[in-house]
Amino acid sequence: MEEKIDSDSDWNYNFYQDLIDDINENRNLIQCISCGRCTGDCPAAKISNFNPRKIVERVLKGDKCVLRDSDIWYCFLCERCKRVCPKDKINIPLLIINLRNESFKKGFGPRYTDLRKYVEMAERFLTNGTVLETPLGEPLPEERVDELNEICNFARIKYVFKASKIKEKKQKK
């Protein structure tokens, strides 16, 4: 059987360019030799359809559908792929964070209210400075908590936090 060889028209770097406009370090993805070591050693690949080698290939081919796939949400961010990759500067966990970011922006990511665990943790972090129900030892001084709130302005963590408040109000009604 004749092997299909990619032609130049199979590759479109617009998507890749968009991603590196956001995170420049992902420029190094172009060095990928598609050896598959990342996927062979990946815990998420063992239990889901997550396949980092294919994700890199799809990004380099300009396949934006990767943002709709649930696969990118299965990454363990364990950084094993980064360690075993024969190339020096390819950072797949950073690419996944990059893709998840784009996915969120386009409204394909998980809904904030679905991130129940994060709603609780975000609320605690923005009110106590810790993800715990009760702080370890002395609580964080109030002005320090204010600093964290200021740092997190306009971040998704705030929307997650707000989503919890809206849900609470609805439940009270």
Partner: peptide, 21 residues
């Protein structure tokens, strides 16, 4: 350190805060 907050790694990993934050 009484002024230390959580490391916030969990929020970064779920894209709930930006890299700069």
């Amino acid at each position: 350190c009484k002024s230390q907050s959580c490391c916030s790694g969990t929020f970064f990993q779920r894209n709930l805060i930006t890299r700069a934050q």
